[in-house]
Amino acid sequence: MAFKIDSRVGVTSAYRWRQILSNYIFLAPVVALNLIVIVIPSLTSVYISMTKWSGLNQPEFVGLANFERLINDPIYWKSLSHNVIWTIFFLTIPVAMGLTGAFLLSGIKRFQMVYRVAFFIPYVIASVVNTELWRTLLHPRHGIGAWLAKQGIEGFDIRVFGSKHTALYGVAFVDSWHFWGFLVIVYLAAMYQVQPDLYEVAILEGASRFQRFRHVTVPGIRPTLVFTLLMIMIWSVPAFDYIYLLTDGGPAHASEVLGTYLYNMSFFRFEVGYAAAIGVTMALITAFIVAIFVILRRRGWEI
């Protein structure tokens, strides 16, 4: 009797194993694609970062020489500092605009859909189009500045993307013009999850609009808010399109970020090993950001 049960269990478990194994066939394509395109090249990058390689000759193993060079490369540090400025810019201005837009939208019913669509349109437009559009608008002789100068308002007809003082902020402005509407929609969706009676209590207690925003809305959407801040930090590391298209890091590296520096290093200066080393540091920065987030969460921060 006991033997019989055992054998039946054996049959079932072998059958079950086959069942579970066949489940993985459904996951195989997506996993294989990611291995081929992302994981394997990423690991290869770690090896390439320890070589001197032009992309044409045989790679020559040089250990950590590329990383030593990075430490002494002022343009690398300049680019990194620009990534930090870029991150701070995106953590403040588009987030503030997104919160404002969403909060005001949550208070109205009429035309809400119209505003939502209007705010979202720049987000669906390609970087090549958006940069062209703003290059025209901010042109010192044909754009808004020149038009204002003609109306007697001087001082705005400057070369926004051509001056080393304004290039980085100009590009960040254009990219955030494209991005903030996305945040409006994300925050608005979160605001609808906040308990409506909390607002009613706040109104009955005489809370002003700003007090309601500060003490009801912000705590209510905190998980979403923190998550968007994390995503902005992660997305700021590989920032590329708008900078490449508007200034290509110039003038004189004034708007250079890690993404453009690496790109030009590998595809125009053929220093592939050095470029890979820059890429590895970018991945480490991302890992660091994610790790901080995970640690804070483990420590019981409600994020």
Partner: peptide, 9 residues
């Protein structure tokens, strides 16, 4: 993962 890590290889 930043695309720059794997785009070159």
């Amino acid at each position: 993962i930043p695309i720059q890590l794997y785009v070159v290889p």
